[in-house]
Design a protein around this nucleic acid. Structure first.
Length: 354
DNA sequence: CAGGCGTGGAT
DNA sequence: TATCCAAGCCT
């Protein structure tokens, strides 16, 4: 194995050559050939895709990205959209704070910066929903600045390249330093995408394809036979199971009762069914007195930090029901289950299929 | 700074 | 079925 420090320029060159051939095509990407020809990607699309991709797979993001850019082609279009429309379009993608911050950020950029995103790491980092990773990704990919992206892919690649056995997240600064050492001043945007593509397609969490890796001759873990067990991570706490109840009510003339959830907390800002708290001790508290019927079966859903068992109660919504400020009465023809977060959509589907 | 915050696919 | 994990951010 060669000395990594004196070899970083050659290594990034090897990776870029690999990327020129193997770059994955994505709707928000400008391929390496066009990029070299001077065509930069649209910062709006880079930003939007990067926010959607936070902790989310490429496969899940693709359709959402196409719908968003079709409906709101520029950051100013998005900034002018109603909150409820954007939340509904985001429904199902998860981590709904991203959508709220997306709108905040779009309005800041549209109103404060005349529709132009900041073109450097420090200013991008100040915007809501943009952290160290996303700021580096936008600065490098959209503006060709030599910033270093450090996502889960890059962490894994660096941990293996240097055979680092200390666990994440503690060892993150070390990995960041190694990643920075390899970042080239030429084509940093392509390099950022290349190193993530490497992690996503070759240097994968399980069964890494070391035999065809452009960095195999430089990889300490490949040399030591430890690649597949890296990176180490501190063990996670087990998820508790909580339970709750949702109340689905439709009036005789076909109007559903839904409720806008507060911005803070789980599923914040999203529409959902009225219901109990989700805790270890469920205490049913229906939105009105009625002969509530329990739907057979239950919804099982897993969030980031707990499992949920959800009972689904139904009743007819009385005529002239007086809703509170958070509640909305939605006629059947306007009701789209796809505009609900997945757990709420599951409750509706259990009721539909009863 | 450790925990809150979604979802679906792979194993 | 249970667990892991995917282009993290915010508090």
């Amino acid at each position: 194995m060669r000395d990594l420090n004196s070899n970083s320029a050659a290594m990034s060159g090897d990776l870029l050559a690999w990327y020129d051939v193997h770059a994955r095509g994505m709707p928000w990407r400008v391929g390496p050939a066009e990029c070299t020809a001077g065509n930069r990607p649209d910062p709006y699309k880079v930003w939007l895709s990067e926010v959607m991709l936070q902790q989310t797979t490429v496969a899940a993001v693709r359709d959402y990205f196409l719908r968003f850019t079709s409906r709101w082609p520029t950051v100013s279009d998005l900034a002018a959209a109603a909150d409820a429309e954007v939340m509904a379009e985001w429904a199902g993608l998860g981590y709904y704070a991203r959508a709220r911050n997306l709108l905040k950020c779009a309005r800041l950029v549209a109103v404060g910066f005349g529709g132009a995103f900041p073109d450097n790491y420090d200013d991008l980092l100040k915007l809501p929903g943009i952290g160290p990773y996303t700021a580096a990704a936008i600065a490098s990919i959209a503006f060709n600045r030599p910033e270093t992206v450090l996502d889960g892919n890059v962490e894994r690649v660096m941990a293996r390249l240097h055979d680092i056995h200390e666990p994440l997240p503690g060892v993150k600064p070390v990995l960041k330093a190694h990643a920075a050492e390899l970042t080239p001043s030429l084509r940093p945007g392509d390099y950022a995408q290349a190193v993530m593509d490497l992690g996503a397609t070759i240097c994968t969490p399980r069964n890494p394809a070391c035999g065809i890796c452009p960095w195999r001759e430089h990889c300490a873990a490949q040399n030591a036979g430890t690649a597949a067990e890296l990176p180490k991570k501190t063990p996670k706490k087990p998820k508790p199971t909580r339970s709750g109840i949702v109340y689905l009510a439709k009036s005789a003339d076909g109007t559903w009762l839904l409720e806008r959830r507060p911005d803070k907390g789980l599923l914040g800002g999203m529409l959902g069914w009225p219901g109990s708290e989700w805790s270890d001790a469920p205490c049913p508290n229906p939105p009105f007195e009625a002969d509530w019927q329990e739907t057979e079966g239950e919804v099982r859903h897993t969030f980031t930090h707990f499992h949920l068992m959800l009972r689904v109660m139904t009743a007819e919504l009385p005529a002239g029901f007086n809703q509170n400020a958070a509640q909305e009465l939605i006629p059947s023809r306007d009701f789209r289950p796809s505009s609900l977060p997945t757990v709420m959509r599951k409750a509706f589907e259990l009721f539909q299929g009863r």
